[in-house]
Each structure stands twice: as C-alpha cells, then as structure tokens.
C-alpha cells in the first residue's frame, strides 16, 4: 500500500545536538517528519536512536538546536504543559517501563487516568487494547511474572491505549520472535492507517524492508543517510 504524506510536518528538528557531559550522543540533526508518516530510525547500537526519541517526548532536553512538534517549540514549553505534549505520544520503551507492583490492566489504565477519562471508558478501553495484543487473560498478572515478549505486548497495549497522534517505538520487537514481531508491526501499521504518525527505532533491517518507509540512518550520533525503502511485496 502506498503511503501518502500529507502536507505540513508534525515534527521538525533544527540543528539538534545532545551531549551527556562531554559525550556527544547526537550531532547537528535536522530533518522533518510528516503527519501520518511511517518512519524508521536505524543505526547500530549506541548510534543515538533512543536519545533521539527521548528528546521528542522531553525525556531529555536538547543541548543545542530546536525541536518543534505540532507547532510547539519544545525549548519554550512551560513545565506544566509538558504532560499535554506527552499525551500526544504513545511510547513503547526499549525497557518497557512497566510498573512492577501494578497489574497489567492497572499499568494500562494509568494512561487514561492521567487524561481524566471516566472509569467506565477506562475499563472498556483497557479490555479492548489487551484483546488487540492478545493479553486479555493476563490482565491481572504483575509484569515481573510475564515473559519478555508478553511484557512487550503490554507495553504496546499501553502505548495505543490513549489513541495517540504519534507512536514512538524503541526496538518494539527486540525480545520477540519473528512471528510475534510481525503481529506487533501489523498493529503499528494498523494505527498508521488510522492516521497516527509512527516512529520506530530499530536496527532490524529485515523488518524495515518488510514494512517499507523512510529511514533515518544514524551513525555515532550523526545523520548518516535518509533513504526511502519500498515495502517488499508480501
């Protein structure tokens, strides 16, 4: 299926630098992401993929340069508006970031509670996203009792629970076998079809080829190349 990028970019980076102390994690990144684009950020481990995603949801702040998301300049956003920025995102973290003391369903409910959704809506939505990732029967389980792949599916369910405009996925198939990875990717493609902008950080070239899309290739924190990979015919 051909993906059409509609008009004005939803994310823009201007000469973004990120340093951790003396260590340069990202250098002079400038590019744009269109609304409803399916974009990959690729590159070897340590290239700066996770750091780039962090800058977008203000998990870290830029050392230099500007990031503009949906018209908001992240360097100028007042602290109390940060939660609103973050609610635009559904984030699948590389390390999942599930709360170990809370059940699967409570972990997902937090996203909706934070938005002040009514109880009934929350219950329904939590059920529905758990069904989508096939984890409905584990809804009362605590995350540490789940396998890596199961935790990843919960993380995906949580990321989509808030119907986000932008999905950020950091190695979302890292601990999944090929089949499970394909299920997750199909899900991301499904949300993309419904209008979300999807940003996937991965070093898995095979996965990129199966989906197709623009690829931002990082190398040692620098933009190496931007290419568009066509989707392989199934």
């Amino acid at each position: 299926m051909a993906i059409e990028d509609s008009g004005e970019p939803i994310i823009r980076l201007f000469h973004v630098h990120k340093r951790y102390g003396a260590k340069k994690a990202l250098s002079d990144l400038s590019f744009e992401i269109s609304r409803n684009e399916f974009l990959f950020v690729s590159g070897p481990s340590g290239a700066g993929k996770t750091t780039l995603l962090k800058l977008l949801y203000l998990g870290a702040t830029v050392s230099e340069g500007q990031i503009i998301i949906d018209g908001l300049n992240l360097s100028r956003i007042p602290r109390r508006r940060i939660p609103f920025l973050r609610r635009k995102f559904g984030i699948i973290f590389q390390d999942y970031k599930l709360i170990p003391q809370r059940s699967v369903q409570d972990n997902i409910a937090i996203v909706l509670e934070a938005r002040g959704a009514p109880r009934k809506t929350i219950r329904k939505k939590v059920r529905s996203v758990l069904r989508t990732v096939g984890m409905e029967d584990k809804r009362r389980a605590l995350p540490p009792s789940l396998s890596g792949g199961e935790q990843q599916r919960v993380a995906v369910a949580r990321a989509i629970a808030g119907d986000p405009q932008i999905i950020l996925a950091d190695e979302p198939t890292g601990s999944l076998d090929a089949e499970a990875a394909e299920v997750i990717f199909e899900l991301l493609r499904e949300y993309h079809r419904r209008g979300a902008t999807v940003l996937v950080a991965t070093h898995d070239a095979a996965l990129i080829r199966r989906t197709g899309g623009r690829v931002i290739l990082l190398e040692g924190g620098e933009l190496d190349v931007v290419t568009t990979i066509p989707r392989l015919p199934a």
């Binding site: 939660p83 934070a114 808030g162």
Partner: peptide, 16 residues
C-alpha cells in the same frame, strides 16, 4: 520513584 517517573512519561499532570 520509578512509578512516578512512568506516570509523568504517560502524561500524568503533577496534581494527578
């Protein structure tokens, strides 16, 4: 503290 951090990342306001 981890839970608080996660709630913040999920867009939880400080009051919440």
């Amino acid at each position: 503290r981890d839970e608080i951090e996660i709630m913040r990342l999920m867009g939880g306001a400080e009051a919440f």
